[in-house]
Design a protein around this nucleic acid. Structure first.
Lengths: 259, 259
DNA sequence: GAGTGGTCTAGACCACGAC
DNA sequence: TCGTGGTCTAGACCACTCT
């Protein structure tokens, strides 16, 4: 891996970036890790631009192709995105990540039914139960904001969600009218709390509806439900949201492709 | 995109491969399509080796880096795989693609329970019902082989599968002892019928069990079940198998990561 | 040792976006 | 027009695998 370290035109006193020499690992992989760390450290904010590849190459004393390989790695990891003619940017985060992709309500999802609506039915500060707190960091998980949210299509309720958000990071959502948040939560997290969701892990399961949730969805108690437990993470890998979504199992439909 | 088409050292009478000039598309993309077509046409069999990149580059009259970009595209598409020091090979196909990844039977999947077992309970030639036939090509779907298969863990039945295979491609499975097929079907398809499964699409839903399937699984009729409908495709994109798998919804658990 | 893919270089020109 | 990323070249050396 340690390439020629070539010799010629070495008139300068010191190499531009000596940290880029490691045995057993490709130069571009080391560079990628260096850049990754800088992104996670916040050297460039989400949505912000990285230096041009020419600049990065010069700074680290490598050829253009090498820095391009490093950046390509970060693109594959979903950390940055590159736009032809504009530059290289830190990924802003998920805006949609809609639960509706798991369900087929009405004829086809979002066809003729109008946009999905969201209503916050309850909001409270709670001490997180252990089952919830364990998803957050060890220091985290004490004081939390708990939401009960109902999603509707064409006026008909279809999904009920329990959401836990760590405090004080989400203190800005603890007061004030919830109607102003809009129908999508993640943009509200970003604009009101400065928290951008970068990755989400959904676990799908199955259970019977309790009386409370069933009533909200207009179904009978004990009706079969699909249960999606989501952990959402910021760019640094910290869990910033835990959510349990329930919907009619009859409406559940999800497609997986194996290659 | 159409690069310099440069001039120098053009002592030969004709360019090595004139098909590699197209306006509006990158050279490597055109090359990738050419190679892709050759793979699908069967110029190199599944598991077989492609020529070395040096040879391909010379044949098409491009630089090494360009052919490497083209091959990288085909790797990303899952069509080929490259092995350092050995060569570039047409992907052999899926061997596992196990349904058990959707379920958590016992403590953890495949832990201490021993390997999953498979039994063919019924086998018959049928005219495919329209709902099944439509998944296969328009000419296909008439005469089919239908299987009823039961999968067990530690002796306990856990999944029941209905499987449709087009004839005459799968005629080799129509007779003889099914016990000799082994516990995995796709390797049997490959060795006995020369059909390799390259891609599979699973659609997940929930439904109540019918009396027959419930009895096979040792559950009550009407018990909620997870239903996975799979279409399996060969390397050329032809549907070669349709399968409906049912298992206890309580045991269903699947994880999706969004980035 | 021969042959393969993997890494790296130093340059060129092209296509795109914004000013 | 300028700066950006995208494509392409022609070479070098390295690491891996098989014989």
């Amino acid at each position: 891996m340690t390439q020629a370290t070539s010799s010629l035109t070495d008139t300068q006193s010191a190499p531009p970036d000596s940290s880029v020499a490691e045995p057993g690992r490709a130069r571009y992989a080391v560079l990628a890790q260096v850049l990754r760390d800088r992104v996670l450290r916040g050297d460039w904010p989400p949505g912000g631009a990285l230096p041009a590849e020419q600049v990065l190459a010069a700074d680290h004393g490598v050829a253009l192709g090498t820095i391009r390989q490093a950046l390509q790695l970060l693109v594959a990891q979903g950390l940055i995105e590159r736009i032809h003619g504009r530059g290289t940017f830190v990924r802003a985060g998920l805006s949609g990540a809609t639960m509706l992709r798991f369900f087929r309500f009405g004829a086809a999802a979002g066809t003729g039914l109008g946009p999905p609506a969201s209503a916050i039915l309850a909001r409270s500060r709670v001490a997180a139960p252990p089952d919830v707190a364990r998803h957050f960091g060890p220091g985290q998980g004490g004081d939390m904001l708990q939401l009960l949210r109902l999603r509707s299509l064409a006026g008909a309720p279809c999904l009920v969600e329990q959401i836990w958000l760590p405090l004080p990071a989400f203190a800005a959502l603890a007061d004030g009218p919830t109607a102003a948040w809009g129908d999508l939560l993640y943009p509200a997290y970003a604009s009101r709390c400065g928290v951008s969701v970068h990755r989400a892990v959904d676990e799908i399961g199955f259970a019977a509806l309790g009386t409370e949730h069933a009533a909200l969805l207009g179904l009978a108690a004990g009706h079969p439900a699909a249960v999606v437990s989501r952990r959402a993470f910021d760019i640094a890998g910290r869990c910033v949201e835990f959510r349990i979504t329930r919907g009619d199992a009859q409406a559940f439909a999800y497609t997986v492709t194996l290659i």
